[in-house]
Simulated assay, not measured.
Amino acid sequence: MKQLIIHVGPGKCASSTIQQFYKLYACELVVPTVFRMLPAASVNSSSLHELKALSKRLPPLSNLIVSHESLFKFPELVRAIAQTISPNVERVIVIGYSREQSSFIRSSFKQWLFRSVERKREVESLFADKGLNIDLFTGMEQALIAGLLSNFKTTRQLSGHLIHQWHKSYSHLERSLKDLNVELSVGTIKPLSQGFDLLHDFADRANFDLGELGALASDYRANESFSEAVVEYAYNNVERLNIGPHDGNELLIELSRLDVERTPVANSNILITALSGYIQKYYQDENLQFCRQFNVQRFFYNQSKSINQTEALIDALQVFTAQRKTLRYHEGYLRFISKHEDELQRLLVPGS
């Protein structure tokens, strides 16, 4: 059977691992498979014509995988791809993933938002409006608190899209495909400690066999993450950074490799854990709808009763700040910053 597999991401849901693996190894699968990385949101008539011609050339038993994490934000592009190629294939399946919102938000901050001057100013303004002393919180804590206080406006993507409302986002995608003969398969990213195997999960949804690549796929990871210590340093100096939200990744990775021990930033993770719980409680009902509608294995723990988020959170933060009094960085973080100050200053505008 010839099939089209459209991988829509989204970003921060292990898209790079899927893309890099199939870019390297699609040609080694038992069934002839071609992988195409799409040009983000700039899919046009020319690129659609190219994909259509490619699908015609493929043998009767084959797979065409097209992918870009930005497709999740543009269901109309997913529809256009499916409509264009479906006459040439027997099966079209759209595959996307999700993850706990608290985990998604933390990952987005560590990847992009920590180096956005505009987003930090937005967070600072929100803290001031609520009468909270921002200097008592790490960058990650600030991001989670601001998200909760703004109904997650401050956690939106740099493109302006708020995509981690999974039920809303996938319902929109489902509606855009409703009158087409297209399958929509939705998964969720779970921790490795729970035995989750992303690439085998993707292959199962796509209905093909990894064959001899199976062992390699189980251990394959694409992205090298940034050190929390480097992220915190950059966030604290964001006004002086000489890199933008999507720039300087090579330098950030180079500096992160200096943090061999992957030093924690805060002296305690108690607040991060509590804030993550608030976030999952906020999305509890919507997540339950999402799991039921899209047959997704539940990826969140049941929370107790619902609460008034803003009032309860501000009360809890006032108590917390009274106890904290000052931001207590982990001693390992302070040692790391002191030891590597000269190297870290490469992130900053010279002479700033």
Rank of each mutant, 00 (worst) to 15 (best):
Q83A: 15
A41V: 11
N267C: 08
N88H: 14
D197H: 10
L348T: 09
G248T: 09
L216P: 03
S45H: 11
I81L: 11
F196G: 03
E124F: 03
R221P: 00
V31P: 00
D129F: 04
A312H: 11
L29K: 03
S16N: 07
I272K: 00
K110C: 07
S116L: 00
L51E: 10
E311Q: 14
C13F: 01
H49Y: 12
A215I: 04
L136I: 15
T310I: 14
Q101D: 10
A266V: 03
L61H: 13
L348A: 10
H68Y: 06
Q142L: 09
S150K: 06
V260Y: 01
D201R: 05
L38I: 13
D315G: 12
Q101T: 04
D342V: 15
L334Y: 00
Q309A: 06
I307W: 06
G96L: 04
F109Q: 05
L48Q: 07
C27Q: 15
R240H: 14
L136A: 05
G9S: 05
K12V: 02
I6A: 09
A53E: 13
L199Y: 05
Q20L: 06
D135G: 12
A206D: 13
I6T: 09
N63C: 13
H200R: 15
Y329F: 14
L344G: 15
E250W: 02
S150Q: 10
Q284H: 09
S47A: 06
H161R: 05
V94L: 08
E261K: 15
F137D: 06
E311P: 00
S218Y: 01
H172Y: 02
L162G: 03
E224L: 07
V92W: 02
A40M: 05
L184K: 03
D204H: 09
P350C: 11
Q345M: 14
A234E: 05
L58F: 11
Q20E: 09
G131V: 07
H164Q: 08
A274H: 11
L199R: 04
N181F: 01
I105R: 02
I85R: 07
S55P: 05
S45I: 07
F74R: 13
L77K: 05
L48N: 08
Y25M: 06
N63R: 15
R335Y: 07
G147F: 01
V296R: 12
F290Q: 08
T273G: 01
H7V: 08
P264V: 02
S185V: 09
G187K: 09
F114T: 01
I93S: 13
E69W: 01
R79M: 04
R99N: 06
Y278A: 12
G96Y: 04
N223A: 04
N267R: 09
R262S: 09
L64D: 07
I279P: 07
L29Y: 01
I95W: 03
R262G: 01
I18L: 12
A80L: 12
Q303I: 04
I18W: 00
A82Y: 08
